[in-house]
């Protein structure tokens, strides 16, 4: 399989006041890979993925997705192109049912396929919601109010919403934070299943998860990319160790 570039950034920068949260970053994702971004707190990981998904607009530089410059596109248009973002802090619609939460994501995907929201095929909608819920194992909780789910299940719902968008690129921002070991193991299996259809970009602090899942790892520090490589390469990289142990 030829390695196709899915997404790349050129001289991408974002400054907040005097703070260079992301500074002149050239970052490339290959189609189909599972990539982890790691780095100490404040390294600019979340800002970088926020720039990619459009929650934050760049101060300078360019983002190219499947050959198209998306730097100026608003977030919702990027979702339409296939970039899905799941929130670091669980951000489901707490007052809506699990079904409605996922249905909202499915609707976007269906509209991308050309369906009109006025005449949406309800049977397809239901089928695709159930498919997404089955993948994360929440199908028996379809009619519950999302707020009543346990924390771990809320994180899974968040992932189900990301999945239901049928993204080409799924960005997971600290997905295992606050999960139990058993839940983490389940999550890793789930991510591997997702990675068959989509490119996965994850920000993660749990190094076991990173080493287990990621095919390549990008290390960020002070808003810049410090190092990039396979898990084994990164493990042996002295600069990375220094950054983590403190300078």
């Amino acid at each position: 399989m030829a390695a196709m570039t899915l997404l790349s950034t050129e001289s991408l920068s974002r400054h907040f006041g005097g703070l260079r949260a992301v500074d002149d970053v050239a970052f490339t994702l290959t189609e189909g890979e599972v990539r982890a971004i790691i780095g100490p707190n404040g390294a600019g990981k979340t800002t970088l993925v926020s720039l990619i998904c459009g929650r934050v607009m760049p101060s300078a530089g360019k983002i190219v997705f499947e050959g198209t410059d998306i730097s100026a596109l608003p977030a919702h248009r990027r979702v339409g192109l296939g970039i899905a973002y799941t929130f670091q802090i669980t951000s489901i619609f707490a007052n809506l049912s699990v079904y409605d939460n996922v249905a909202l994501a499915v609707q976007t995907g269906m509209r991308r396929g050309g369906a009109s929201l006025f005449f949406l095929n309800e049977a397809t909608l239901i089928a695709r919601v159930e498919e997404a819920l089955e993948k994360v194992g929440l199908d028996d909780r379809r009619d519950m109010q999302a707020a009543n789910l346990s924390y771990g299940h809320q994180r899974l719902l968040e992932v189900a919403m990301g999945l239901a968008l049928r993204p080409k690129l799924l960005i997971l921002d600290e997905p295992t934070q606050g999960l139990s070991d058993a839940e983490i193991a389940g999550f890793c299996d789930l991510t591997r299943a997702i990675a068959k259809d989509a490119t996965v970009l994850l920000i993660e602090h749990n190094m076991d998860v990173v080493m287990d899942l990621a095919e390549r790892i990008t290390v960020m520090n002070n808003g810049a990319i410090l190092s990039e490589g396979t898990p084994a390469e990164i493990r042996d990289d002295e600069r990375v160790q220094r950054a983590y142990l403190g300078t």
Binding site: L104, T108, R111
Partner: peptide
């Protein structure tokens, strides 16, 4: 459903592509 989603959490609705 989209309108209700906007009422509940506009930022999230936007990140679902609306």
């Amino acid at each position: 459903r989209i309108l209700i989603a906007i009422r509940e959490n506009e930022e999230r609705a936007r990140m679902l592509g609306y």
